[in-house]
Amino acid sequence: MRAALLRRLAVAAVTVLLVVTATFAAVHLMPGDPVRLYLGPTASPAVVAATRHALGLDRPLPVQYLEWLERFVRGRWGESIAQQRPVARVLGDALGPTLVLVGGSLLLTYLGGILVGAYQAARRRSRADAALTGVTAVVYALPSYVVALGLVAVFAYGAALWHWPRALRLPAFGEAGLGADLLPPAARLADRLRHLVLPLTTLALVGIAGTARFVRGAMVEALRQPFVRAARARGLSGSRVLFGHALRNALVPVVTLLGLQLPALFSGVVFVEVIFAWPGMGRVAVQAVLARDYPVVMAVTAVFACLVVAGNLLADLLAALADPRRAAAAAAPADRDGGG
């Protein structure tokens, strides 16, 4: 167990190093010149040279690379060119709102996805199963910005058009209403929750659809296993077999799904934050790109990737805890090259 964990940690460290290298390479090996783009075509050569020197861009690439690695490890990610304040502080302000969205939607994704998938597996080949398979396939294929705009159209445009009650006219912009700070605490919380509904629903819908598809497959597979038949033969009730035996075994691959879900979620969150004017890291990244503020974009990409790596580690750990066989297999000296 400990050996497996150490190996996973080493792999994660190498992955982080490669990711941080890739973000550096993306900026410095692409044809564009950040200084010229930022200053515009009318800047004099002297100003360009001075800015380049101030940003440290006139030093040899290997020196800049090592410096970027060192600064990244120490959390000093330089100055935002456009905002004239440390990148770490820009991201610090934006991290909270993003984690609220990502954490909330992960929670809903797993809850909803497991419920829907388990229901489908229990009623497999029924009409409800077929209908849900169709619905989840469609929703899973929808881009998050399409879902988001659809929700805005229905709950902001449609709700007013069709005279829906006020409670259903959900806000589509920002994380709090105008003047929310003046409200009493309970009303302020309610206002924040109302603002959270549409962005969270967007991310959760797509996540639930994907997870349900996966859970259904894993459950159907688990229900075919001998241990399920054995449990039935011992006279256990249907729901006990379904949840206690089949679902428990199906959950192991579902946990490892987190590693695939996080990158997709961090991609979706960019569009959701832009559409709902949510002050998180994705929106910060898009604004930074439009302002040619590349240090911010570099840091956002690297931070997102580190969160993905951490999520992968966590998923592996949880899967090992849930399934001792997996831990044993990972600890055995694997013959990675063997076979053919």
Binding site: T15, V19, A22, T23, A26, V27, M30, P31, G32, D33, P34, L37, L262, P263, A264, L265, F266, S267, G268, V270, F271, G282, A285, V286, A288, V289, R292, Y294, V297, M298, V300, T301, F304, A305, V308, V309, N312
Partner: peptide, 16 residues
């Protein structure tokens, strides 16, 4: 695979 695709795309198009 660990790098979320949309943020990385933003980085790639940021400088051109």
């Amino acid at each position: 695979l660990a790098i979320p695709r949309v943020p990385f795309l933003l980085l790639l198009v940021a400088l051109v």
